[in-house]
């Protein structure tokens, strides 16, 4: 390829399109199922399947700890994993803005390959469209995944029961904080990197401890706070958190302090919220702390019968208050 950027010709379906597919995507996504035909043909065998799709438009497309490619694999892998499903196959669709640097596209594809390989998920089909300058913001990726649910897994946001423990698999708000800093709108500098990670291994490890896991959710957009409100609503229960037990990186706390933001509402891309019976929780946390993406796992609260639909926080002065309900865009609060 002579050009150094993606052009409209790359999306026209002709020779240049094949070149782009061969040299960027086939080079990175090669596997026996990767198809040149109109659809991939898969043999899934017996059992229940889980399927999920997600679009990614993060700006900037590169950030501390990852890029939009890694994110697009992690997002769908984690959605499947939360259902106890081992991710098997994925498809990805790119919408690329005319003029996007080819070496960056190559880097993105390479991160996707690396992340997919780590999980053992195969990318079996893809699509590329090129949009005119200004029609999209650099690059958008949509991924769809299919996975096989383990026979011993049965999780849902409706299964949380009073007396269950609430576990989070690491410190909260890192991805959201990283993106906020990467946009450089507020002149703040901090050593924070995204928690973006594929969590199938993390979920698999939980089931070596017990099958009694009621809910697993990945806390993406809206953060852990939003996920907890969703679970409270779906299961018709209350959530009581202990403020002192919620892991937050000091620098994330610093940035939030500067802008008046609540870390529980900043996005994560590699953190699970797990609801499981209280007597199983310590062993689960112990197991999680052995995993590379969940070293700071902690029990942060419990499910209650009272305050149904609400998330209540036990504060540092020993009083209870409600966690503000999620809503609207995150705006820094200064005065």
């Amino acid at each position: 390829m002579a050009e150094k950027t993606v052009t409209l010709a790359h999306g026209a379906g002709g020779k240049q399109t094949s070149e782009l597919i061969d040299q960027v995507f086939k080079a990175h996504f090669s596997n026996p199922q990767f198809t040149a035909d109109d659809a991939a043909v898969l043999n899934m065998g017996e059992g229940r399947l889980a399927m999920s799709t997600d679009g990614f438009i993060v700006s900037p497309f590169e950030f501390n700890g990852g890029n939009i490619g890694k994110l697009s694999i992690c997002g769908t892998v984690n959605d499947l994993s939360c259902m106890g499903a081992k991710p098997l196959y994925m498809t990805c669709a790119f919408v690329i803005e005319e003029g996007f640097p080819l070496d960056k596209l190559e880097e993105i594809a390479a991160s996707m390959e690396k992340t997919a390989n780590e999980v053992g998920v195969k990318i079996v089909a893809g699509d590329t469209k090129v949009a005119g300058k200004g029609q999209v913001d650099k690059i958008f990726i949509t991924t769809t995944g299919i996975g096989k649910i383990m026979d011993n897994a049965d999780t849902s946001g409706t299964y949380a029961k009073p007396g269950d423990a609430v576990i989070v698999t690491g410190d909260v708000g890192r991805h959201g904080c990283t993106i906020l800093l990467a946009r450089d709108e507020y002149g703040i500098d901090a050593d924070v990197d995204s928690d973006c990670a594929p969590l199938w291994g993390t979920v698999e490890s939980l089931y070596t401890v017990t099958n009694e896991i009621h809910t697993i959710r990945d806390a993406t957009r809206g953060g852990v706070g939003t996920v907890l409100y969703e679970i409270a609503e779906q299961s018709g229960v209350g959530v009581r958190l202990n403020a002192a037990d919620i892991p937050v990186d000091p620098a994330v706390k610093g940035v939030c302090g500067m802008l008046g933001l609540e870390p529980l509402y900043l996005a994560c891309e590699g953190r699970l919220v797990i609801i499981a019976p209280k007597d199983k929780a310590p062993a689960l946390v112990e197991k999680l702390r052995e995993g590379k993406y969940s070293k700071n796992a902690a029990i942060i609260g419990e499910i209650t019968a009272d305050n149904a639909g609400r998330v209540v926080m036990e504060t540092e002065i020993g009083a209870q208050t409600m966690l503000p309900q999620p809503g609207g865009e995150l705006l820094p609060r200064i005065c």
Partner: peptide, 9 residues
């Protein structure tokens, strides 16, 4: 200035 590792001018 530095607040817990968050720096700004």
């Amino acid at each position: 200035i530095d607040a817990n590792g968050a720096k700004r001018e």
